[in-house]
Design a binder for these strands. Structure first.
Lengths: 277, 277
DNA sequence: GCACGGAAAAAATCAGACAATTGAGCCGCA
DNA sequence: TGCGGCTCAATTGTCTGATTTTTTCCGTGC
């Protein structure tokens, strides 16, 4: 696949299908097999690969993608499949296509950065330190406010769900999938208690992205810290309907989670920023 | 267009194209002409119409859309165009399609509620009061925190941009397009000063949705309140690098904006059915 | 009961043609 | 010279109809 940059042409070799009848095996460059759980379709895979490439900066904003016919031939897929992939990317604000002009990568401020897929794509390759920092900053803001809201609005059923999640989290550890699921469940229950669908929608996506990044940490160093007490403090505040304390405890929880997330390998500028109160 | 609900069939008459050669004029049911600025393509219009219908509750989560062939015939468009529209909706989490099953509306907690398009679609028909409330709640949380961040990080250039926007807002009023643009610019400048791309991405989308809703208020009652002093107070706090005051002033600003937004007239039955998890 | 395989339905993919949009260049006119 | 309108061509957009895959359902045999 060729893309036209300001400085010339960049190439990118991807083949999704092989001509039939030949003994060639299918080449599956990026995903397709890697994503065992969801079984992406062809257009989904193409969209994902392109999305990862774009968010990784491989294609710069303003760059013009090769025409549909050429791209589809290069990828060995039909024009239909390629077009549907582009539609997906356009729906997420990553590209924009017009007749006679072509499909070009839009400027980053028009990307739907909080779209779950875009978030996942952006943190697929190697997460930019600054971006990760910004994400935790947002999470701190929203989720601690959510804890405050939950403290005033939670029902007993939601409280039970939170308690149950913590117990499961204590039983299995975060090293197991069940434990991580329990962690997710706790946050989901707390968010649901806010009664605000937008907060739920926002934070679930963000947390999912953060958690996939966090998987690395379990690989490198063993359990840096027991997360249960921190969660328990948040839970207790919500149970007591103490909004202020709930907010504070959640904020420290997020900060601790940030500290337990390893810094991505290559991080050029590491200037420290002042955090919100 | 027919959709299959739990209780039978619902119909929906849309025709996008007329057979050529006949004297029939093109019927343009929802948009296409209404959207003068952006000139949506066919697939974009279909996606928009379906998106509005889904967010309006016309199709309930779990409902199964008619098959591609039938739908495209009903709408008098090609299968390609219809499929691309569905891809767009799927990219925003509104529907999900599998072979042998069909395309079904997903449960609301999987919708990308903060996607700019979804937001616009949801507030297109008549905004649900509860949803509007939730949106302002989120806006209050995020934008006041953003003001605090901006107070500590802003550069003088960004400060100049904010001042300039306020001056323009004072000159033209909010009754004019230029004045509203200046309002947008002020908030954009403030958000940019946070240096957090996620906060920018989130809030610009939310504010756009809120502002389109707010357009109504200028029609019904004349200028309920001069917004300039409120904005000036936020500006002054940011200029003084006073994070706490900036946060407070922005919070009051959002609350005032909420009060100036009229309550939507009818909140018919767009209630979401409770579905098993 | 359960593993296995066949059938059918719907989306998914393919192929190739034709239409619509739009930017660029050209031309003529004041 | 400058500007308005015209034509042209490149690229996406749309259409049609066939073929392939995926997935559910259902039977069949163990």
């Amino acid at each position: 696949m060729l893309i036209r940059t300001a400085a010339g042409w960049k190439s990118r070799a991807l083949v999704y299908n092989a001509p039939k009848g030949t003994g060639m095996k299918k080449l599956v460059p990026f995903g397709r097999t890697r994503t065992v759980s969801k079984a992406l379709r062809l257009h989904g895979t193409i969209a994902r690969d392109l999305g990862v490439a774009i968010t990784a900066g491989e294609y710069q904003p303003g760059d013009l993608l090769t025409g549909e016919i050429a791209s589809s031939e290069e990828l060995a897929v039909s024009r239909t499949a390629y077009r549907e992939a582009v539609r997906i990317l356009a729906a997420k604000g990553l590209v924009e296509s017009k007749p006679k002009v072509g499909t070009k990568v839009t400027s980053r401020d028009r990307w739907h950065l909080l779209d779950p897929d875009v978030l996942a794509w952006a943190f697929e390759s190697d997460p930019d330190l600054e971006l990760l920092e910004s994400l935790f900053e947002l999470r701190d803001i929203v989720e601690s406010a959510a804890a405050a809201l939950a403290a005033t609005r939670r029902t007993t059923e939601q409280l039970d769900a939170m308690r149950d999640a913590i117990e499961r989290m204590a039983h299995h550890t975060l090293a197991t999938p069940e434990g991580r699921q329990a962690d997710q469940d706790f946050h989901a229950a707390l968010l649901a208690a806010t009664g605000n669908p937008y907060i739920v929608s926002l934070t679930t996506g963000v947390n999912a992205a953060v958690n996939t990044t966090t998987v690395f940490k379990q690989r490198e160093r063993p359990l840096p810290r027991d997360p249960v007490p921190d969660h328990l403090r948040v839970f207790q505040a919500v149970a007591d309907r103490d909004a202020v304390r709930a907010q504070q405890e959640m904020s420290t929880l997020v900060h601790l989670a940030r500290q337990d997330t390893p810094v991505p390998p290559r991080s050029k500028d590491r200037r420290t920023r002042i955090r919100p109160v």
